[in-house]
């Protein structure tokens, strides 16, 4: 019993949600948001996709990417801290750069952002893998 409306909605929802999550991630330092929340939002989107197309199917489709996300996410978070070590500062010391844009504005780049991206990826990967493990297995394929 599968709703084609749900299928269509899910297919449309995933990219939109991911975009929204990335927005939440980037603005996190100043407004509500951040890597953790963004990660959970993305997970929620993946779950909805999973509910529509079968969790096992979704996780299998994303399997490689998710493992990579876990490794990259955790690695990125540690590396963000190690930048400071390379510079001779205590681990996790953060640096901020302001790249001027044409006009009046500027882009705020920082090592905290790298850290937060690591958090984002790790959260997506671990929650989804866990769900995949518990929901997957010999489930029927769509």
């Amino acid at each position: 019993m599968r709703s084609y409306i749900l299928l269509a909605a899910a297919r449309a929802l995933l990219p939109v949600t991911v975009l929204f999550a990335i927005y939440m991630l980037l603005r996190g330092h100043n407004e509500p948001g951040g890597g953790f929340i963004a990660g959970l939002v993305t997970t929620a989107a993946i779950i909805i996709e999973g509910l529509a197309f079968g969790v096992a199917h979704t996780v299998r489709r994303l399997g490689r990417i998710l493992t990579a996300f876990l490794v990259i996410g955790l690695g990125l978070a540690v590396l963000a801290g190690l930048i400071a070590v390379a510079a001779g500062d205590p681990f996790l010391t953060n640096y901020h750069w302001h790249m001027p844009l044409p006009g009046d504005g500027y882009v705020h780049l920082s090592t905290t952002l790298i850290f937060d991206i690591g958090v984002y990826l790790a959260v997506i990967a671990s929650t989804t893998v866990a769900i995949g493990v518990f929901a997957g297995g010999e489930e029927e394929t769509p």
Binding site: G28, H29, N30, F36, A77, F91, L92, F115, D116, V119
Partner: peptide
């Protein structure tokens, strides 16, 4: 350099906690 103190705590002041938790 962050207005969202909760996020600054997570990624900066207490980044080690977050690192541990992920």
């Amino acid at each position: 350099e962050g207005r969202n103190v909760v996020n600054v705590i997570l990624v900066d002041f207490r980044g080690m906690d977050t690192l541990g938790e992920i």
